[in-house]
């Protein structure tokens, strides 16, 4: 995994795993690799991976089962909620950046629509 050195590593690992859950690479109820294996997979420190997992456990997306490991939650509602959260965060960024360019809400909507149409035609 290529990390952005400016952003806390645990946060990037968290987002990486959330991404895998939302896209379905990791399924509800699926067991996660061991902490050390995850550390090797993403080339990070075991403690940093552990911190990322703790954050996800607190958020209720990962469940830690004593002696058995970590599992993706079976509650699909929670995963849906997570998806909404991540989408909102992305939208908020775009919205703020476009506002900073003095675009009104209507103008943002129009340019987004135009952009999507163009991208759709390009495919």
């Amino acid at each position: 995994m290529n990390f952005d050195d400016k952003v806390p590593i645990y946060y990037q690992i968290e987002n990486h795993i959330y991404h895998e859950i939302i896209t379905g690479t990791l399924k509800p109820g699926e067991k996660l690799p061991s902490v050390r294996q995850l550390a090797v997979d993403v080339t990070a420190n075991v403690n940093t991976v552990q911190r990322a997992l703790s954050e996800m456990i607190t958020a209720g997306i990962i469940e830690s089962k004593r002696g058995r490991g970590n599992f993706v939650t079976m509650e699909t509602a929670k995963i849906e909620q997570l998806k909404v959260q991540l989408v909102t965060a992305q939208l908020a960024q775009v919205y703020e950046q476009l506002h900073a360019l003095n675009l009104s809400d209507t103008e943002i909507l129009t340019s987004l629509q135009q952009y999507i149409q163009q991208r759709g035609q390009a495919k």
Binding site: D4, D5, K6, V7, P8, Y10, T48
Partner: peptide, 13 residues
């Protein structure tokens, strides 16, 4: 990670 959170810069910077 505290350096990254506190200063918004990478370790090298």
């Amino acid at each position: 990670d505290e350096v990254r959170e506190e200063f918004n810069i990478g370790i090298e910077a």
